[in-house]
């Protein structure tokens, strides 16, 4: 996570609202608004540059959403409007629909841009400050506390899981090398081994939770995130919200005014 250490004690509400508004404005663009989408990306890249994140790095981070495009591939071949190409490949007769291609490409670009927006959110605000901001925006206390603690213990338990996985690999319950070597045991044995790892990770997590409870109780905790730990409210919040509205307006208008392909 690339959080600026100075951002931890800051009111992150403006950053959270901006990200959600930006993603929503992008989602509202109709299929084929490639120019508007490029404009939205340029705005994002500019914001990234202000925060010291290069457009190349940002663009690469956006690629994580791409595997999901598999879900939109059928539409390219199954719509029968605006036929771009039809023919046969081997035993298959195929048709490529222009409308379908437009839907798939637009979804892909939106996903790619939206991921970069949340990357920028993390550069602006630390995870705990995002939770505090959401708490301020009336997220129920039990969810906020639970989310805050999940974030706090995430790395500890992931590290624990990594060590257990390494130990399992060392005892040959998982494939080694390029996967062509023999794997140990039967499928049910491997499933049981994995289930036991999950079970023992649960027991470790459970006893950790008890230690945390004891420690918290001895310090007089009441079980919800204390208001006292919140950073001071952002004094320029209203101004920033107007800025966000302007941003949304630019993206939406560009979607309406720029030509679609």
């Amino acid at each position: 996570m690339i959080a600026d250490p100075r951002s931890i004690g800051r009111d992150a509400r403006a950053a959270v609202v901006t990200t959600i508004a930006f993603v929503t404005a992008v989602a509202l663009l109709p299929p084929g608004s490639y120019l508007a989408l490029i404009l939205a990306w340029l705005l994002l890249a500019f914001a990234g540059a202000l925060l010291g994140i290069g457009p190349g790095h940002l663009a690469r981070r956006g690629l994580v959403a791409l595997p999901f495009v598999v879900a939109a591939v059928p539409i390219v071949f199954l719509r029968s409007d605006e036929l771009l190409w039809a023919g046969t490949i081997g035993p298959l007769s195929l048709q490529v629909s222009g409308a379908g291609l437009r839907i798939a490409l637009t979804a892909l670009m939106k996903a790619w841009i939206s991921v970069q927006a949340s990357v920028l959110l993390l550069a602006l605000a630390s995870p705990p400050s995002i939770v505090t901001a959401l708490r301020r925006m009336r997220l129920p206390a039990v969810i906020a506390t639970s989310a805050g603690l999940t974030i706090r213990y995430l790395e500890i338990l992931r590290d624990e899981a990594r060590r257990m996985l390494r130990a399992r690999t060392a005892r040959s319950a998982s494939p080694v090398g390029d996967g062509r070597e023999r794997i140990g045991g039967t499928i049910s044995w491997r499933a049981r081994t994995t289930g036991s790892l999950v079970g023992s990770l649960f027991l470790r997590a459970y006893s950790r939770a008890q230690r945390v409870e004891d420690a918290a109780a001895s310090r007089g905790a009441t079980g919800s995130l204390s208001i006292g730990t919140m950073p001071a409210a952002d004094s320029r919040l209203t101004l920033k919200v107007f800025g966000v509205l302007l941003l949304v307006l630019i993206i939406t208008l560009s979607g309406a005014l720029l030509p679609r392909l």
Binding site: V142, T145, L149, T150, Y153, I156, L165, V198, A205, A217
Partner: peptide, 20 residues
């Protein structure tokens, strides 16, 4: 008071368990 703590730590557990 302990319920949100248990939920929070077990949230991290579910997260980590998805690695298996």
């Amino acid at each position: 008071a302990s319920q949100p703590i248990l939920m929070g730590v077990l949230g991290a557990f579910i997260f980590a368990a998805q690695m298996f």
